[in-house]
Every structure is written in C-alpha cells, then in structure tokens.
C-alpha cells in the first residue's frame, strides 16, 4: 500500500532539544554542529570522585585557572562535528597524497642539493616528535577540559597532530628510498643533537602541565605559532634556492592545517580573554612565559638551518606571534 504522505498534515511539535532552545531563547531549528555539541557533557551529580584526582569532580571546571560563565561560549569557527571534521581532513590528506605521488613520479626529491637534503633531514624529520608531543597535549586538553565546545575540537586536533607526525614519517621514508633509516637517525638527533635539546626540553615541560588552558596557550598558540611559520615558511623559503620544491609540496598539508588550526585557537582565546580582566591577565602571563621559553628553544635549530639568518627568522616569527596575541586581547 503506497500512500501519498504529502496529504498528511505532519507538523513538527518542536524544532530542537530543550537545552538548545533555552540557549537560543526560542524554539528554532539548530545546526548539526549545535545539536552535537551543546551541553553534551554531563555537568551535575557525579557519583564518585576520580581515583586519579580525588579533590575534583569527574568533569570539573577548576582544572584550569581560567573562569568562564559559560564554557559553551568557546565556539569553533569551523563548526566541526565528527562528520564534517573527517570529511575535511580526508580531502586535505587526499590532496597531500597526490603531492606525494607527484613528487615520487618526477623523482623530485632527487633535485635537492646534497647539503640542503642533510639540513631537511636535520630539521624536518625530528619534528614528528614535536607533533607527537602536541598529540599528547591535545588529548590531555580533551581529557581535562570542560565543555564539549572546546574538548571535541581538542580530540580532532589530537588526530591532526598524529596525522602530521605520520606525514613527516612518510617524508622520512621517501627520503630514505622507502626505509626507516632517516627516521631512526632523526630520532637520535631529537634525543642528543645540541640544536634539538632546547625544543625537546620545552616539549617535555608541556607534557607535565596540568592546567589544560595553559597547555592550550603553550601548545596551540605559542609552540605551533612559532614553529610552523619558522619551519614551513622561513626554512622552506631558504630551501627554494637549493632545489627544495618537493619539500614545499610534501609539507603543504601542514601549512594549510596551521592556518585552519589558528582560526580555532584564536577564536577560543579571544573569547576567554574578553570574558574578564583576570582571564586576560592569566592568559597574557602564560603567553609571555611560554613565548620566551619557545623563542629561546628554537634559536639553536634556526641557527643550525639558516646560519646567521637564524635569529632574524626567529625574531620575525616572534613579532608575528606577538601581533597575533595582541589582536586576541593579550598583553605581550
């Protein structure tokens, strides 16, 4: 029996869930971003205190010193929910794979000057350990953070950072003609080379930071905000004189990702800083603390890659970052 359903009068009795209508101040349709995110995390009547942190609730806003009236104010301008996140990344990663195939087909890695090739192995390949540290930090922010508005994009970022570590890993294998030798050598540099130790120490310091919003500043704003422009802009630009077009192609994913990631980072910080003078002061103090540590940590690497031009490149990255932070309402 087929029935023309159009002849039935089927009117929705409500447009969205009650908790969302209350936020809207009216019952109107909500987006999938809103329905999948708003108020999804439990807030009340937790049954047991965590064994691993008995002085806090399971979800507890006091895991950071930042205070928000409404944690769901920290929106993601990309409006990612799981589906749109994965679809966006699958597209970016397919484009990156296309570049990998193109570079391999044309033998473009063979165009690298021998000297610069060694530099690339020195600066680029150990960066996968920095990305791995960033993955742990993003996971930590998801774990300890408060409110799905910020914790959901945090686990997406964890996936991104792992994906980036693996893009670098793939570059390392291609540079070694398909084997793991270059990556193993890179790990040795990460562990022992002088020009990496400042950064490794910096990353290890972030791994023990318990205030998740401070970690957000340290990782997403400062470390990513200095290392990405330094490596994927300044180092990359120098490489162009040494036949490094292939490296630009293979790291395009990171450049594209960084500008997208920064949109989210900036939106979250801007709202938190605008919330109160106390927040702004805390965020500013964390910013300057991690900026100074990071600035010093990257100088030996920049000098190793760019020689005398290293300090100028770091200064430029710092100036860009300071300007960015100022726009977010932080004092620098």
């Amino acid at each position: 029996m087929t029935i023309d359903l159009k002849t039935l009068n089927i009117e929705p009795r409500r447009q969205t869930f009650g908790h969302i209508a209350r936020r809207f101040g009216e019952d109107r349709p909500a987006s999938r971003y809103e329905e999948g995110m708003l108020d999804v995390q439990a807030t009340k009547h937790f049954h047991y205190k965590p064994f691993w942190e008995p002085d806090k609730e399971l979800y507890d806003a006091s895991r950071t010193e930042i205070v928000m009236q409404d944690w769901y104010a920290l929106r993601d301008p990309r409006q990612y929910y799981y589906a749109t996140y994965n679809i966006a990344r699958a597209g970016m990663r397919a484009a990156a794979q296309h570049n990998f195939d193109f570079v391999e087909k044309r033998g473009m890695l063979g165009n690298l000057d021998a000297g610069w090739r060694a530099k690339v192995e020195d600066y680029l390949l150990p960066l996968r350990h920095v990305a791995w540290g960033a993955n742990m930090n993003a996971t930590q922010i998801c774990d300890r953070g408060y409110g799905t508005a910020v914790t959901a994009p945090a686990i997406f970022t964890a996936g991104d950072q792992l994906g980036i570590a693996q893009v670098i890993g793939q570059i390392g294998m291609d540079m070694a003609g398909g084997g793991g030798e270059a990556l193993e050598a890179a790990k040795e540099k990460w562990m022992t080379a002088d020009y990496w130790q400042g950064i490794r120490k910096l990353v290890e310091n972030t791994l023990v930071e318990q205030d998740w919003f401070q970690l957000f500043i340290a990782q997403n704003l400062v470390i990513d905000g200095i290392i990405y422009p330094l490596v994927y802009d300044s180092f990359d630009a120098s490489g162009q004189a040494h036949g490094a077009a292939a490296i630009s192609m293979l790291t395009e994913f990171m450049s594209e990702w960084f500008s997208e990631h920064s949109r989210w980072t900036d939106a979250v910080i801007k709202v938190a800083a605008a919330e109160s003078g106390t927040n702004a002061a805390k965020l500013s103090a964390w910013f300057t603390k991690w900026r100074d540590q990071t600035g010093e940590a990257v100088r030996p690497l920049a000098a190793h890659v760019l020689g005398d031009g290293g300090d100028a490149a770091v200064d430029q990255a710092l100036a860009t970052l300071n300007a960015r932070a100022a726009k977010l309402g932080l004092s620098t």
Binding site: Y82, A83, N86, R89, A90, G91, R93, Q97, G159, L162
Partner: peptide, 17 residues
C-alpha cells in the same frame, strides 16, 4: 594510520548523513 582513518570514516559519514 590517520590518513586511512580519515578516509574510511569520512566515507561512512557521507553515506550515513
């Protein structure tokens, strides 16, 4: 690996939605 994860999951999500 993450590239495979994004690929499989995004295909499933397209169909589901």
């Amino acid at each position: 690996t993450m590239d495979a994860y994004w690929k499989f999951q995004s295909e499933k999500e397209r169909k589901l939605y």
